[in-house]
Design a protein around this nucleic acid. Structure first.
Length: 480
RNA sequence: GGUCCCAUCGUCUAGUGGUUAGGACGCUGGCCUCUCACGCCGGAAACCGGGGUUCAACUCCCCGUGGGACUACCA
């Protein structure tokens, strides 16, 4: 078995494509198959090297590995379509010689006009074969006019194309209603996707083409080309589309749809991978958070659903939070670090164990790695700026009572670096506050936020010096 | 418009002729708790419609309806 992922480097890797890449990867792993990466960069205007690089980087970030591709040549290369033009040329010549394709001199404008006419009449557009039997003189004349021909594939009339799709089952098309003879080589000599994909899949010995459902309507064209070339076709499996909340194909306008953005927002690759992989099917047990190995063990093409799935950003976030909670502490700490640095902290100034302890304490309150940006200051800043609710809490009657007591404790040296974690009890003794009325003001005062991990645990990590500064600062602000 | 695909809670799904239609996210009531989160216990929430087939349809068939994709000298 040989599968492939064939992205077009015209932008970032987005969720829809990532799903195709992931499913192919998982299927490949399951069957111990070769996984080929091919770059479909024949759209010269839209393709770019940067885009190819970013897609590759995103695939790697996700943990997807291919066994063959631009960077791993196993004899089926080149792996970029832009480097394979001579190969395609041979097939085009063959098709032309066998009269299975022909040159077409119709201009874009002429075709547009024909199309507009069909639309006005409300009938489906079909190319009228204007150039099918052009005389040599006519061709010469067109050439003299400076027209450059495209190559059109001649579609057989009344042909039935049956596709046995691994997901959809049997799908039948009629050659008569696919729009007529279609262009396989542009007037500038660059071949079209629908054409070369067939050649590449054959030459690269792809046994299973697993791709998005949006390609299903293209499939009959590809099958016809394969037949004309006397080539076998691979097995097809068309994956249902990933949809946005409005049930339309997921795209940029739905918000964050590129893998790179998820990375930047602080999603773990494993979480994204897990979520995307289980979108559209369910495990035997119904569990959804599954290690990759387990997904590989359980998934199979025929276990995949047939209907499109709405991408649930909220559920992904939930899953990410679960991964953050359960990840190996050392590993998750190292993943958090870039986000702490991004928040403006120089980590070389912090002890490794200290950072790890902080992460252990607050990871449960993080859905995204980037959430650390608002939690880390609680430990790192001398006097973090209190958020709105915390400010209000400190300014309340209980807040001032607690604050005054805390100030007295500090000024009288009743508390020191040895016993400061007992401060809550001391304030309790001094003020008579208890329960919520005690803890919330103290929490607000000493941590600047109302929510978070166990208070005593946090105090230990914040340290006496900072506690002192925070009390003094709050006292000046509220009681002077 | 044409071709093709799809159809169970709001969302992701389980279900393959006989089930109190199950689970997950989200929502929600409670417990735990100084708070939030986690965790635990509960709740509301679905078989698109109509015909068949059958003793029996969410399940099979047909027709509607709805949604989607495609309809390029993009992939």
């Amino acid at each position: 078995m040989r599968v492939r992922f064939a992205p077009s480097p015209t932008g970032f890797l987005h969720i829809g494509n990532a799903r195709t890449a992931i499913i192919n990867y998982i299927i490949a792993k399951k069957h111990n198959a070769e996984y080929l990466l091919r770059v479909e960069d024949t759209d010269m205007e839209r393709s770019s090297k940067e885009s190819e690089e970013s897609i590759i980087a995103d695939l790697k970030w996700l943990g997807i590995e291919w066994t063959e591709g631009p960077d791993i040549d196993k004899g089926h290369g080149p792996y970029r379509q832009s480097e394979r033009f001579e190969i395609y040329q041979k097939y085009t010549d063959k098709l032309l010689a066998e009269k299975k394709a022909y040159h077409c001199y119709c201009s874009q404008e002429e075709l547009d006009a024909e199309r507009a006419e069909s639309e006005a009449k409300g009938i489906p557009f079909t190319y009228k074969r204007t150039c099918l039997n052009l005389s040599e003189e006519k061709k010469k004349q067109y050439e003299a006019e400076g027209r450059k021909p495209t190559v059109r594939f001649k579609v057989n009339d009344g042909e039935k194309i049956e596709i046995e799709d691994g997901i959809k089952g049997k799908v039948v098309f009629e050659s008569d209603n696919i729009g007529g003879d279609f262009i396989i080589v542009r007037s500038d000599g660059v071949p079209i996707y629908n054409y070369i994909v067939v050649i590449d899949d054959l030459l690269m010995e792809i046994s299973h083409v697993i791709r998005g459902e949006d390609h299903l309507p293209n499939t009959p064209k590809q099958v016809m080309i394969a037949r004309a070339l006397d080539m076998p076709t691979p097995k097809y499996a068309h994956l249902p589309l990933v949809l946005g909340p409005d049930k339309k194909k997921l795209s940029k306008r739905h918000g964050i749809t590129s893998v790179d953005l998820y990375k930047q927002e602080g999603y773990l690759p494993e979480a994204l991978m897990n979520y995307i992989a289980v979108l559209g099917w369910s495990s035997e047990s119904g569990e959804e958070i599954l290690p990759l190995e387990e997904i590989i063990r359980q998934i199979d093409i025929d276990r995949l659903g047939k209907s499109s799935a709405v991408f649930d950003f909220v559920k992904l976030k939930w899953m990410n939070a679960a991964y953050i909670r359960n990840y190996d502490l050392k590993k998750i700490t190292s993943l958090f670090k870039p986000f702490i640095e991004k928040a403006g902290y120089d980590l070389s100034k912090f002890d490794e164990d200290y950072i790890e302890t902080i992460i252990a304490s607050v990871r449960g309150n993080c859905e995204l790695l980037s959430d650390i940006a608002k939690l880390f200051p609680i430990f790192a800043e001398d006097v973090p700026t209190a958020d709105e609710e915390a400010t209000a809490m400190i300014a309340s009657a209980e807040g001032k009572t607690a604050l005054t007591a805390a100030k007295e404790l500090i000024d009288s040296d009743e508390i020191n670096s040895d016993n400061f974690t007992e401060i809550t009890n001391m304030i309790k003794a001094k003020t008579g506050l208890k329960g919520k009325n005690l803890f919330m003001p103290v929490r607000a005062l000493l941590t600047s936020v109302l929510h978070g991990p166990d208070l005593a645990e946090m105090l230990k990590l914040i340290g006496f010096e900072k506690i002192k500064m925070r009390i003094n600062s709050a006292y000046e602000k509220n009681c002077v």
